[in-house]
């Protein structure tokens, strides 16, 4: 499990750096897909809640260093997302297209809800998605479109990202 968490965290941090340096140049309406979230969703769904929440915690903390987010912001939100998505482990067959898109769209909505709760808990000192704004919905669509490709890429690394008995 620790090997899976370690590798997953590395993948997520690389995704975060790519989001920051590369994807920001091709942003659509100043919105970029959250590749780090998609990777977390894959790892959580395939490995379960324990791996998902620890991966979310570790990668979230490291992502906070790359962002203007307060320390703990991404750690908290991604721990919860990892735990929740991990509860769905094995529930549905992970097909190529439809389910990854649906899963990541759902995870993005969960992220928005968690961020809104944090926004209220901390007296609006942290930002929140405006549900009437385009940013959230564009991010949901971009995450859903990117999910099948990212999942297909991550399946190439099954040996390090999935439990040994399933390999």
């Amino acid at each position: 499990m620790s090997k899976t968490i370690g590798w997953a965290t590395v993948f997520i941090i690389i995704a975060g750096i790519i989001q920051s340096s590369l994807l920001s140049k091709i942003a659509i309406f100043n919105v970029i897909p959250d590749l780090a979230l998609i990777i977390l969703v894959y790892v959580s769904y395939v490995n379960g809640s324990m791996t998902g929440q620890i991966t979310g915690f570790a990668s979230g903390f490291l992502l906070d260093f790359l962002s203007l987010a307060p320390l703990g912001f991404n750690a908290l939100s991604r721990t919860i997302i990892g735990a929740v998505v991990g509860l769905l482990k094995g529930t549905f067959f992970l097909d190529i297209l439809f389910f990854p898109a649906l899963l990541c769209a759902g995870a993005t909505i969960i992220k928005a809800i968690i961020v809104t709760v944090i926004h209220f808990l901390f007296n609006a000192n942290t930002p929140a998605y405006n549900f009437s704004n385009n940013i959230l919905w564009i991010e949901i669509i971009l995450n859903a479109i990117s999910a099948p490709f990212v999942f297909a890429f991550l399946k190439l690394f099954k040996k390090v990202l999935t439990p040994r008995k399933e390999n």
């Binding site: 379960g48 324990m50 929440q53 979230g60 703990g72 908290l76 901390f122 942290t126």
Partner: peptide, 22 residues
């Protein structure tokens, strides 16, 4: 239960970090 305890521990740590950072 182990999963739940770990989850609670992690969210507490992250929450505390956020509290300190803000």
């Amino acid at each position: 239960n182990n999963t739940l305890y770990v989850f609670l521990a992690l969210t507490t740590i992250a929450f505390s970090s956020l509290l300190f950072s803000t």
